[in-house]
Design a protein around this nucleic acid. Structure first.
Lengths: 350, 350
DNA sequence: CTGAAAGCGCTTACAG
DNA sequence: CTGAAAGCGCTTACAG
């Protein structure tokens, strides 16, 4: 039998509201009474019923996290960041997977609203302004993560995808590559624009046959890279939208008999845990997954406490991490790092 | 302004209990009335308040998932299995990380109880009978996952760790290895016993210097393997408690100037997504992470519906996946697979 | 500082 | 089949 404030009240011969006040540290209560109530509560193993208090205060101390796929190296780390900081503030987090399908996202959204969550962190499946606007209008504090529309009047925390795409492409160009493939994601555009922009600076037009779309998975990367590698004039470098995709590409490249980086340079994005342990260690763009989640949670906390007049928009800077999977074209040196980049990478990551 | 059953009732000139009945598909209501109520509910965008119904029915349609670390490749896949099947049944899942620290586990446990979850899936931080017994006595349906005490009167779903450890060690022995290290985990014992048992069959005593403990992480694996590799007589094979640990070991082995598998054979456990994409592809033990979560959720669902008289105990069989990271000792062939094993592995995994 | 009332939004016997 | 009452366990004005 669960113990309630009424039972505590009865044993002490007081009204249950008094017990409620004592337990919530209300100032309107005598120190003596507070002590007696609290110690009895502990003795009886009282556990507050948050669904009851949630009904009466409209505050459940629950939040929702909506992402494409929690089993992904990226989102699972983001989720950890969210959970750790939410927990410290007394919140629990619901985890919701959408696979970037809008119907699943709607389903989860409704489920969360019905459960009266105090806030939602979401990596939305689509970036249509009207859709996002509707989410914002639901009356629940919300912060976007990893993906958003900067023009929206909404809080978000993302990595500067453009910068990441740009830095990597620039690096590849500096190594002498001119036929650089970019294996893109469906929803992801920022990195692609960065890639495009860097090419433009060198007067190179985007070649559609070099920018296949894939689905962020290892298998997807393998499939996409297979096409690339079988071309009559294969690219000399393949830049992948994330590290799992690069892993798949690695396989495809080798199955075709090409060596990395001697025949084809390979680059990823994310700096997944496994990236530096690959053979060769993977050159990639580091983004702080845990911090993304942490920061999003912090902002949501402020929003929920009404401490935010204006939306907070934060962009974490990605950093180029040069390892051994890209080589200088027409140069025997395999790893011709730009010293500043390397330095930057190591200091920030360490 | 959120719409409630009272508002619907008012507009229709009926009592709110009638609305409640219509919405819950109670049989005690006329078909006509049901239709009118339902269509108005839809028109008004009514969303049931699950915290209110939760308070009155003591059913929140929420469950908790307590694991060591959601950002891990293993648990993130388990979590996905749990979430997918729970969602289909109308449940949301809270995600809780403990890092295998008992205080954090207790904290989360209390948080879940306070929130009135209908059930809990847990990979407990410790396996002391008294502790587990206390969890079981809390009056919440519970199913253990990945770790448990078989002697307990409780449902669980685990991989047959003993068999996995045994199969791999047996395989290594069959390749001619006699100095086989096992990099173990702190809490994990089943695989270790399997390793021990296989050695015993060959009359080989366990050498403590060959069984360092590590923490399931890449870095931990690197550190542990470094010690092994620097021994005066290094092992000829290193079997790691999981694939991330094997990844770290791979690095350590190579940094020491040894080749895999020519100088040292390496094996993992889990069959993580990245395992087959490593160079060389990693020989490991496959366990079905997603299915573990799926099955645990299914069992919990039955428990919550009172459909389980007896605890359900399920052990998923792991399968040896032979790739190229282990070699036959005193034999030039690198990969001397036992054909049956290979066959088994491919059919089940495909 | 403490008590008694009313309410959060729903559900569940109990009448009729 | 429908209504009115009571209750889930808490909180929050309102009195005193």
């Amino acid at each position: 039998m669960k113990v309630t404030i009424r039972q505590i009240a009865k044993q002490l011969g007081v009204h249950h509201t008094t017990v409620s006040r004592a337990l919530r540290n209300s100032p309107c209560i005598s120190e003596n009474m507070r002590q007696r109530i609290k110690s009895l509560a502990i003795k009886l193993g009282y556990r507050p019923n948050l669904v009851a208090s949630g009904l009466s205060t409209r505050k459940t101390f629950n939040v929702g996290l909506i992402v494409a796929d929690i089993s992904t190296t990226f989102f699972s780390q983001v989720a950890r960041g969210v959970e750790d900081t939410m927990r410290r503030a007394g919140y629990n987090v619901f985890i919701c997977n959408t696979d970037d399908k809008i119907e699943d996202e709607k389903f989860h959204w409704d489920a969360l609203i019905s459960r009266g969550v105090d806030g939602i962190i979401i990596s939305p499946a689509n970036l249509k302004p009207r859709y996002l606007q509707k989410l914002l209008g639901a009356g629940v504090p919300i912060v976007f993560i990893d993906r958003c529309l900067p023009s929206l009047r909404a809080s978000y925390v993302i990595t500067d995808h453009f910068s990441g795409g740009y830095q990597m492409t620039k690096y590849l160009l500096s190594l002498g590559h001119r036929r650089i493939a970019y294996v893109r994601g469906e929803v992801e555009m920022g990195r692609f624009y960065g890639y495009e922009h860097a090419l433009k600076e060198y007067g190179i037009p985007v070649d559609n046959s070099l920018t296949p779309v894939c689905d962020f998975t290892i298998e997807g990367g393998k499939k996409a890279a297979k096409k690339l590698v079988r071309m009559e004039h294969p690219p000399t470098a393949i830049f992948c939208v994330n590290d799992p995709v690069a892993l798949g590409a690695m396989k495809a490249i080798r199955e075709h008999g090409f060596r990395i980086p001697e025949d084809i340079s390979l680059a990823g994005f994310d700096n997944a845990d496994f990236a530096e342990f690959l053979q060769p260690p993977l050159t990639t763009v580091h983004q702080s997954k845990y911090e993304l989640g942490e920061e999003a949670a912090r902002i949501l906390l402020q929003e929920m406490n009404g401490k935010l007049r204006e939306p907070r928009k934060v962009e974490l800077k990605p950093v180029l991490v040069i390892r051994d999977s890209c080589r200088h074209i027409g140069d025997s040196r395999v790893n011709s790092a730009l010293p500043e980049c390397l330095l930057l990478a190591t200091t920030i990551i360490a």
